[in-house]
Design a protein around this nucleic acid. Sequence first.
DNA 1: GTGAAAGCGCTAACAT
DNA 2: ATGTTAGCGCTTTCAC
Lengths: 350, 350
Amino acid sequence: MEGMATSTKASSPPPSRRRASITDVAKAAGVAVGTVSNVLNKPDRVLPATRERVEAAIAELNFVRNGSARQLRAGTLTSVGVVVLDLSNPFFTDAARGIQDRLERDSFTLMVAGSDEDLDRERRYLRLYEEHGVQGVIVSPATDDIDHVLAIHERGTSAVLLDRPSPVPEVSSVAVDDVAGGRLAVEHLLAQGHERIAFLNGPHTIRQCRDRMAGAAMALADSGRDPGAALLEITVPALSPDGGEAGIREALELAPDRRPTAVFCVNDLVALGVLRTLRREGIQVPEEMAVVGYDDVTFAAELATPLTSVRQPTVELGTRAADLLFRPEGAAPEQVMFEPQLVVRESSTR
Amino acid sequence: MEGMATSTKASSPPPSRRRASITDVAKAAGVAVGTVSNVLNKPDRVLPATRERVEAAIAELNFVRNGSARQLRAGTLTSVGVVVLDLSNPFFTDAARGIQDRLERDSFTLMVAGSDEDLDRERRYLRLYEEHGVQGVIVSPATDDIDHVLAIHERGTSAVLLDRPSPVPEVSSVAVDDVAGGRLAVEHLLAQGHERIAFLNGPHTIRQCRDRMAGAAMALADSGRDPGAALLEITVPALSPDGGEAGIREALELAPDRRPTAVFCVNDLVALGVLRTLRREGIQVPEEMAVVGYDDVTFAAELATPLTSVRQPTVELGTRAADLLFRPEGAAPEQVMFEPQLVVRESSTR
DNA sequence: GTGAAAGCGCTAACAT
DNA sequence: ATGTTAGCGCTTTCAC
């Protein structure tokens, strides 16, 4: 792909000259800087005639307000920082969408970064955001260690946990009940008559993974089965299609009497890799192997075998998180918890 | 979904106290502000003993550097703004991923926003970024009107066009040849024996849409056919699965002798809606209707009918764009053009 | 309604 | 090696 790129260079150098400041504008318009500031911020306090002169100067000089100076002086905060686990996961981009929609109402800007489940990266981005003076941060933590998030919150930058209930009452959170989700999935597979279920899960350092596992185990325990015997947890190397491929191959290598007849995937990306691999190996879904995913992404219903999946209110998750950021100073923190929903399709029904 | 959310409120108020400044730190450590600044920026210029004292004070006071003041004074630019057409389109999130990967090397932060193909929104975000003092902007323009992008560039904030060749030599761009892409798709369908092809396209205000149409028409012209007769362009209401559904329904309403036997979709999201609708209507793909998409997103190969699609080097597109932002002041602008590639799958082969 | 001036927190230049 | 200080561009009193 790289070799195919063509590149043409021109010779004119990029621009560089200093940006016009409010002082330049004042000078050009023959007014004081305070007046220019007023034109910008409280236009009614200045006579139409002067205002027009100032506006002309602004246009003339291509003046663009310096946000840093503005923020430094006025403390005006107009951006929000978001750190999600994975920028390539539709679950998170949908949530980001919800956040942006809500932010737009107040013409805030969104800064997004993906931590790729790396705590260090998460810390770095949050620190950068904080220095940048964001109004607040929304973060889906990579690990259980959220001390740095609490610290940010204590230093005065509001923080909201995304897809993760807050372990402390001071910080707001928006999450979906993952224990319930894991349970839904496994209960469904049991109802379909499966007795050996593989769970392609991510590392337990990620709370969502741990909770879904807990839910899965509860479903088994409730049905009187021994979770250890009926449920085989396989940790995938990555929460991606490739990770799913690796995971299912591990399951397929088992002796026939140990081999699972159903696989529950911690997300739809992983399920995608599973379906791909099963198809390549000529294993029929759901006849020979039932598959359940998680997130119910857009394409889940349109796959070769429509995928049963646990649906989460993603966009809503984002808007709610943003809402929590905008509550008046002094409002009580809130722990919002949504309920997931199982969407049954062909991939798991005989 | 909304009704299912549970919310618990606690009573402790959020934090508020003023952040410690460099002056506070200096006072606490018994040194001058300049020394604190040095500890922060050039640690070797300060004696280990003093440094430790300062660091202790920093920890003690929970000091976080004020980025606005820093940027105001030093002109240090550490963020990049990106505006893409659609935050829910994997094509753009993959590109964003590429951008972030590249940015991380210089520990820059990424601000992302989606314009939803709205010029006004695009303008607003760019303005916000510019005020915020970003080092540069990367934008996939919603329309042909890119005067505001040029203006930003002229005012000294470097700008790179994403997925769009620059019409002017001063501004760098990274794009994929969409004419070639449109041509590839239609040539393929012609080779498969189709004589009436529908093109579910977006509005021609979007350059990608226009170019892909041009490529499609060229393929027909080159083969000696009359593009007007063999190609039916249908403008979808949205570049989404729902848009695709609306578009294909329009095609299906045509009299049998006018009804297309193949449909080329301007992106895979639209193709997803088309496949979904055809399946619901019981129309066989590819036997009764061939389908070709664009972007070759992750799930294209795993759909009920694996989707033929035009692949673009998305992540690479992003990293290249970011690269262009980081070139030394004075480097010549570059117009990078990638070549797309047709990935043939079942959805279009009889 | 407008001007003058202080000062937000920081870095860099200069002085010691 | 450390202290002192000017000033980045802006908003916000406070006079007039």
